[in-house]
Design a protein around this nucleic acid. Structure first.
Length: 670
DNA sequence: TTTAGGG
DNA sequence: CCCTAAA
């Protein structure tokens, strides 16, 4: 399993552009990206500010209630709006769901409780199933592979079958680690965990609780997950926000209470959820199944293929325990996706003609939304705009058996999938829309482009075990660079970057300070910042676009990547067989999939190896190369040197007995 | 592009 | 690791 973290930052300057673009798009009756961004931001902000509605949310058991209350508080004098909020659960939802009608229709068709459609869509109440009347609330259950169907109230639910310990173990393990590192040991475990996230297996109440895998109109499956609340530290601090959910969790999952070192889990943001689902399921559910039998479609098209193809991608949000809980950071855990967003929003025009409702977003700490509040009393169509927002981190966990291409796909976009292209637009998509073409990404592993999409991550050397110094993604320069930034000043950096790399535009910045602080709001060419780093990297390599930081245009010394003993061994092996004059071949033989090793590197390494082997052990530094290997280095070096100087100029050895020949020769040489 | 070497 | 002449 490989975990990579993504950061996407949209800078203010960019957002300005976004807004402009959005107006254009509105004219075209399209869902403009900015709207989506705004919606996302609202989502994020609400989550981050959920404490604000804690009081009002008491007694509610749905996340949406919190949202609704939040909004409705602002709409006290607008009963119509208020009722709408309550009915729909969240006005914000409708703001950024481009095709709500279509989805609703589909769901109405498959689910016989239209009034819960939204909940079903967004899993607002995935946790409410623990209520006594849960059977009447959630209708979009699906059947998991390892669950058996249970009929309640004429509805179908899933019951976990005989996997309690497994699930619990997996879950506990995850909770303990709080990271996904434990996930990848074997796929089985992962699968268990996945199931665990969607099924409860503890206690009689939870027997019938597989509640959460839901199907969407496109046939994809969503898997909500539960979160554990860190206790006791979080227990008292949570302000009752979303308490209903958490309490449900805790009540249902008794073992949570005994966990002392858990990290908080939570439902994913629907936005991120949907987005990730889109990206992740696109490859597995390309044929949109009929929803007539939603269970069937789910299990057949969604779950099973999802599992069987073993192309599961997991995204989890990195837990940042080091960050004060005040920021209400949570660890989102899901078999599919998770998000933690921050938002800082202001005001933005909306498009009432679309029936889109806006929510007021008040930036954390600052009161930028006051104006919107004032307007609201007279105009239910609240206006707001995104000042800025960022997606702190998104960790995607990918099986090492996945291909590079798949990871790219996940990271970038799901181009070519027209089915999903029109829906499920979220941040990445919005950015994509704004920036031009899709965020097709190239992958940079430790400074080297990984070109072969067909390789598995493992083959490409992308593994959690491997010393991943950095893993980055680049995006193609083409149309993106042609992005018009109307008001933005000249774009010198763009040119530079184009020069730098024809294939990809490599973006570079410091991880901690992606935006040049000195630039203030006048960041000339800030665009999307995509930061990708391996989970285990202390200082993740950051890629970004920025005028101040394009050290990429000139000699940026590659990051040093010492050869491991295994690599040295492979090198020695290859040289023994191929000689010292065919570094390209040696490279291919010994480091075929290590794209960050060039034949020059290999050659240089051999050079240093020979030198190392020639000097006294006391003078050697760094990673100690086993003497045995050094002996072989000297032997091979001597052998091939001698051979070169003599008759066998190129010494094409017989392919078969090659090893024997070499060994014999080496023995003689020694 | 690959080799071969110096820096 | 970088840089490059030379092949």
């Amino acid at each position: 399993m490989v975990s990579v973290a993504i950061k996407v930052l949209l800078y203010q300057k960019l957002l300005d552009q976004l807004e402009r673009h959005s107006h254009k798009n509105i004219d075209n009756d399209q869902i403009c990206a900015f709207e989506l961004l705004a919606a996302v931001a609202s989502e994020l902000l609400q989550e981050s500010e959920s404490s604000a509605c804690s009081n009002a949310a008491v007694g509610k058991d749905e996340l949406s209630d919190c949202r609704a209350v939040t909004k409705c508080e602002q709409l006290k004098e607008d009963k119509a709006v208020k009722s709408e909020c309550l009915d729909q659960g969240s006005c914000v939802e409708s703001a950024y769901i481009p095709e709500p009608a279509a989805q609703e229709q589909n769901l109405k068709y498959s689910l016989d409780r239209p009034n819960h459609i939204e909940n079903n869509i967004f899993h607002k109440n995935t946790c409410t199933v623990f209520n006594s009347d849960f059977s009447k609330k959630d209708r979009s259950y699906t059947k998991l592979e390892n669950c058996k169907e249970v009929n309640i109230d004429g509805k179908s639910y899933a019951e976990v079958e005989g996997r309690s310990s497994n699930l619990k173990d997996a879950r506990d393990k995850k909770i303990q680690t709080g990271t996904q590192k434990q996930l990848g040991d074997d796929s089985k475990k992962t699968e268990d965990l996945t199931v665990a996230n969607s099924c409860s297996v503890k206690g009689p109440i939870e027997k019938h609780v597989n509640n959460n895998a839901a199907i969407n109109s496109d046939g994809s499956v969503q898997f909500p997950w539960y979160r554990a609340v860190r206790r006791p530290s979080f227990g008292k601090q949570r302000n009752n926000v979303k308490l209903g959910i958490r309490d449900d969790d805790e009540n249902s999952y008794g073992f949570y209470r005994h966990s002392t070192n858990i990290r908080s889990f939570r439902q994913t943001s629907r936005v991120g959820y949907r987005r990730m689902r889109k990206m992740l399921t696109s490859r597995h559910c390309k044929a949109a199944p009929q929803l007539k039998d939603y269970e069937r479609s789910c299990s057949n098209y969604g779950m099973k293929s999802f599992y069987r193809n073993r192309k599961r991608v997991y995204a989890l949000e990195r837990c940042r325990l080091e960050i004060p809980s005040k920021r209400r950071r949570f660890c989102y855990c899901s078999s599919i996706a998770a998000y933690d967003w921050q938002a800082n929003c202001k005001s933005i025009s909306n498009s009432p003609e679309k029936g889109i409702k806006r929510d007021i977003i008040s930036p954390r700490g600052t009161g930028a939304s006051a104006s919107g509040r004032n307007h609201q009393k007279k105009d239910p169509n609240v206006k707001f705009s995104i000042k800025s927002f960022k997606v702190p981190e998104l960790i995607i966990e990918v099986s090492e058996t996945e291909t590079v291409g798949s990871l790219k796909e996940v990271m970038g976009s799901s181009r070519g999938n027209s089915l999903l292209q029109k829906r499920e637009r979220t941040v990445m998509e919005a950015v994509k829309t704004i920036l031009g073409s899709g965020l097709r990404v190239g992958m940079v592993l430790q400074g080297t482009k990984v070109r072969d999409d067909d390789r598995t991550l493992q083959q490409a050397g992308i593994s959690q075990n491997g010393n991943l110094d950095n893993l980055g993604f680049t995006r193609p320069p083409s149309p993106i660079l042609e992005l018009e930034l109307p008001s933005s000043s000249s774009d010198p950096s763009k040119i530079k970057m184009d020069k730098h790399d024809e294939d990809y535009q490599k973006l570079a910045l410091s991880p901690t300070n992606p935006i040049d602080p000195t630039s203030d709001g006048a960041i000339p060419n800030s665009r999307t910042l995509v930061i990708v780093s391996p989970l285990n990297a202390e200082a993740p390599m950051v890629v970004s676009v920025g005028p101040k930081n394009n050290r990429s245009d000139l000699s940026q010394r590659r990051t040093r990547r010492p050869f491991s003993a295994a690599e040295v061994e492979a090198l020695v092996e290859a040289v023994e067989q191929l000689g010292t004059g065919r570094w390209r071949d040696v490279k291919i033989r010994a480091f075929e999939y290590a794209d960050h090793r060039t034949y020059v590197d290999v050659k240089d390494k051999w050079k240093t190896l020979v030198h190392t082997a020639s000097i006294a052990p006391q003078q050697r530094r760094g990673e100690q190369v086993p003497q045995e290997l050094l002996d072989r280095v000297l032997a091979a070096h001597a052998y091939w040197s001698k051979k070169h100087g003599k008759h066998h100029a190129e010494a094409p050895k017989p392919v078969d007995a090659q090893a024997v020949v070499v060994n014999d020769s080496l023995n003689k040489a020694v």
